[in-house]
Amino acid sequence: MENRILHLKNKAEKELQNILEYWAKNMLDERNGGFIGEINHLDSKNILADKGSVLNARILWTFSAAYDLTKNPEYLNLAKRAFFYIKNYFYDKEFGGIFWTLYHNGAPKDTKNQIYALAFTIYGLSEFYKIYKNEEALEMAQNLFYQIELHSRDTQKRGYLEAFTRNWEEIEDLRLSEKDANEKKTMNTHLHIVEAYANLYLVWPNQKLKEAIKEILEIVDLHFIDKTKNHLKLFFDENWVEKEDVISYGHDIEAAWLLQWCAEAIQDLELIEIYKKHAVHFAESTKEGIDEDGGLWYEFDPKEKKLIAEKHWWPQAELWIGMINAWQLTQNEEFLRITEKNFEFVEKYIIDHRKGEWIWGIREDYTPILKDKAGLWKCPYHNSRACIELIKRL
Rank of each mutant, 00 (worst) to 15 (best):
W257I: 00
E264V: 03
K229G: 07
A255M: 03
K276S: 02
Q260A: 15
A283I: 01
A263H: 03
I253V: 11
D245Y: 10
Y249L: 03
I225G: 05
L258R: 15
D237S: 14
A255N: 09
F282P: 00
I274V: 15
F235P: 06
E264R: 08
I225R: 06
N239M: 07
F282Q: 01
E284C: 09
N230R: 05
L234T: 02
K277A: 07
I253C: 02
E238Y: 07
G250N: 09
A279V: 00
W240R: 13
D237P: 14
K227E: 15
L232N: 06
H278P: 00
I253P: 01
I266V: 07
I274L: 07
A256L: 11
A255V: 05
V280P: 00
E242S: 13
I247C: 05
V241G: 12
L269V: 08
K243L: 09
Q267E: 07
L271D: 04
A255S: 07
A283D: 01
D268L: 03
E242A: 14
L234C: 10
W257Q: 02
I225N: 05
H281N: 15
G250L: 08
F236S: 11
A256P: 11
D252F: 01
F236W: 14
W257Y: 10
W261F: 11
K243Y: 08
I225T: 06
Y249V: 04
E244G: 06
A283Y: 00
K276E: 01
K233R: 14
E238S: 13
V246Q: 12
E242L: 09
V246L: 05
W240M: 08
I247N: 05
S285G: 12
T228C: 13
Y249N: 01
E254V: 12
V241L: 13
D252T: 02
W240C: 15
L259P: 00
E264M: 04
E254F: 04
H251S: 15
T228M: 14
E242V: 08
V241T: 13
A263C: 08
K227A: 15
W240D: 08
E273Y: 02
I274R: 04
H281C: 13
K227H: 15
A283M: 06
L271W: 04
Q260N: 14
E244M: 10
F235V: 08
E273P: 00
V280M: 02
C262W: 02
I247Y: 13
D226S: 12
W261H: 09
D226Y: 12
S248Y: 01
N230P: 05
E264N: 09
F236A: 12
A256N: 09
V280Q: 01
E273F: 03
N230E: 07
L234R: 02
V246D: 11
E264D: 13
W257F: 10
L269R: 08
K229I: 09
D237V: 12
A263Y: 01
K243C: 11
Y275N: 00
E244Q: 09
H231M: 09
A256Q: 04
K277E: 09
Y249S: 01
L258V: 12
W257N: 02
E244S: 11
G250Y: 05
H251K: 11
I274F: 04
Y249E: 03
A263E: 05
K233W: 04
H281E: 14
N230T: 06
L271G: 00
I225S: 04
